[in-house]
Design a binder for these strands. Structure first.
Lengths: 249, 249
DNA sequence: CCAAAAGTGTTAGCAGTACACCCATGG
DNA sequence: CCATGGGTGTACTGCTAACACTTTTGG
């Protein structure tokens, strides 16, 4: 009963699926692509693809992300290019029946990205879109007519929940913002991800008072109207202490 | 570029590895087994094995756990038997070089178990043991002479870190205790997992004051010496609000 | 001037820390 | 009687929620 007998093992396909989240028009949105072939032809699904034979899981996720969006992800585990997007492993889904054709184990990854000009799916313009996660999750799973393909509704739900909890105790919310942003813009990110309203005064005090969370970028902007707001960049801190508190309600 | 072309995919082996943690003699310990064959013959490794062709990932982890320890795990996702042990997916490790023989993707799972009489490894008595995680992690990775095989030091470290953070905001620490336990025993679990000393008075107030964390079991015990202590069972609550606070230092 | 958004000040209340103190048992 | 661990009371402190108020722009 050796745990590793390389001669006899069942054949698996291993894929990566991506939950790519961004905040657009004050709503948390996910990237979905339209399937061009069965099963679930014409249905929306999470972007993803096979892991290559000589490729690490995180590398496969970063490659798929670049192919689908042009984004260059920053993997905290692999210091290198950082174009603002955050990438981390989410969970692995391996129900024997999750793909009707064969045994596919999918390692889902979570990507948090700033608002992008427009999605591009390998040149095919209208086969990819940003959709509010509320709509996607309300549409149900693959059993429902308009639901996401495969178990992608489950994966998306897990990714959204991860994002909602992680911005509480980490500085990850800044990954949804452009390089320079205002406190108000950061607050609208929290409000969109959590779906709540936050007190602007207390929020301002809290984020500017947490050491390492934000560093002043020097300028100001009035792009939100009203009094000019200071511009900030993400600071070096990754863990927030004390954490941001999500209102109960 | 379909993300799912079942005709051409690289062949992967998929395994589950288990980080089984318990608290013994005031120390956080992990279950390790001695490898009987190359590579890393004679080295200690995490228990694990291949996922069968028709088996879910969680089912494979529960099966391996039962084979190695006789424990019947409770998977929150699959309501059923609950013998105290907690099982959850940890993370997936897929470096192309993590197994020198072939491409193996391992879905690691985390198990939190109460202190057990003795480990049993499929009848082979001295090929499995509980080892303090401090010793295992101090021994280094597979490059070091006494380190765990493969990337299991990394996996163990991730599992320990997960356990340390999860007992902050969930009631999972009770998974380390027998069915009935005292507040002092629960406190010693926190102290062992975090490696800190906690104020017994404040701890008592905190856990008994958090609704749903503990329910009185009725009796008392003096097995720790001193004044008899009330016995409790784990309550229904899974998330603690407010959380337990891990001292900084 | 008015609306809108950015910031600052103030207060009440709550939760955590530290520690004095009492309780109930075994030896 | 004393050591040991269980359990309660209390003062102090820091964080948060709530909200009044001032600042600086655009229209």
């Amino acid at each position: 009963m050796s745990p590793y007998d390389p001669s006899a093992f069942p054949p698996f396909a291993v894929t990566v699926d991506l939950v790519v989240l961004t905040v657009r028009r004050h709503a948390l949105c996910a990237l979905v692509v339209k399937r061009g072939e069965p099963p679930f032809q014409g249905r929306w699904a999470l972007p993803g693809g096979f892991v290559r034979g000589d490729e690490d899981l995180a590398a496969a996720a970063a490659r798929e992300l670049a192919e689908e969006t042009g984004l260059c992800a920053h993997d905290p585990g692999r210091p290198g290019v950082d174009n603002g997007a955050h990438l981390e492993q989410l969970a692995t889904y391996g129900d024997p029946k999750r793909d009707p054709r064969m045994r596919v184990v999918s390692v889902a990854h979570l990507v948090l990205a700033p608002d992008l000009p427009a999605p591009r799916a390998g040149g095919d313009a209208n086969s990819a879109r940003w959709a509010p996660v509320d709509e996607l999750l309300a549409a149900g799973d693959a059993e429902a007519p308009g639901g996401l393909a495969f178990d992608h509704a489950q994966i998306l739900g897990d990714g959204v929940e991860r994002a909602r909890s992680k911005i509480e105790y980490s500085s990850l919310a800044t990954a949804f913002c452009p390089t320079e942003f205002t406190v108000g813009e950061l607050r609208r990110v929290y409000e969109a991800v959590w779906g709540v309203a936050l007190d602007p005064r207390n929020f301002h005090r809290k984020v500017t008072g947490t050491p390492g969370f934000l560093v002043p970028a020097g300028g100001t902007t009035t792009r939100q109207g009203g009094r000019p707001a200071q511009l900030f960049r993400a600071g070096g801190a990754t863990l927030l202490n004390p954490p941001m508190l999500r209102p109960e309600v």
